[in-house]
Write a protein that binds this DNA or RNA. Structure first.
Lengths: 136, 136
DNA sequence: TATGCACCCTGTAGCAACTACAGGGTCAAG
DNA sequence: CTTGACCCTGTAGTTGCTACAGGGTGCATA
């Protein structure tokens, strides 16, 4: 299939597919006589893997490691689990941080009583960290 | 005060302070005879405002709007509230998205039973979106 | 007086993970 | 034979910094 089809099949931007090839995440496919990229099923499933992992928030480097693992079926699976577990912990940390931030923002937003900027509680709260209840 | 003092006073990297000046977020300060930047209290509180807003996740452009507002004390405060509210909604959306993602990751991680990559449930789950329970 | 060191300056390039052109080639339909 | 959809390469832009390179300044110490 040509790049446009692969793009539609995987929901990936054409430019992104070429980008992945450039950085070595996808192997360079064969070319047609007209120098068009020609992909097979292996490419499509590899790209699906990449996109799905990206959707789950893995970085390109993490995905590279995961792909290396799956390219070498004899290797120990524990490494994949370590990568995924570390990533899960990062996501949990991010959620915790955003939750603090949300609470702080909600407090700030709730203070607006209208009026002019000079008396604005929102602007005041943003300017002075001491109005905060939690660290962020 | 010189840039190093301002940096320590606000917990901001020196390069970041110069960056904020370059993009017009901080006004260019006076210079000493040796061409060193010389800051006053107004600069420090403006920079604190910027840092605090960044810590709360506001973008540079949002901060620019908030600063414009606070520079013009007669303006309606509602605009600041709108910016903060919109930002709060984005944070909430992000938390919701990350929570789905965390649940999915937790499911995937939990499937590892050791063994070799060829049988790896983690890699399998990453390759195939159909293993997922929720959209992301 | 020399020299070492901390500090300051400008300008440019790098990071992640794309995205968006500019400027061209290819191919099938009408 | 031209229109339009597709493809190609290469480069530059995005956000919010951070990290140099290559220089100047200012003060204390030997």
């Amino acid at each position: 299939m040509k790049i446009g089809e692969l793009s539609r099949a995987t929901g990936t931007n054409i430019e992104t597919i070429r980008y992945y090839e450039r950085i070595g995440l996808l192997p360079a496919p064969d070319r047609t006589a007209a120098n068009y990229r020609s992909y097979g099923d292996a490419h499509r499933s590899r790209l699906s893997f990449v996109r799905h992992s990206r959707d789950l928030g893995f970085t390109i480097e993490e995905i590279r490691s995961l792909l290396d693992l799956s390219d070498d079926p004899a290797r120990d699976c524990g490494e994949a689990d370590r990568i995924a577990t570390a990533h899960l912990e990062q996501v949990q940390a991010k959620i915790a941080q955003l939750t603090l931030l949300r609470d702080e923002l909600a407090r700030i937003v709730g203070r607006c009583r209208g009026g002019v900027a000079a008396d604005c509680r929102v602007i005041e709260a943003l300017g002075d960290h001491r109005h905060c209840e939690s660290p962020h």
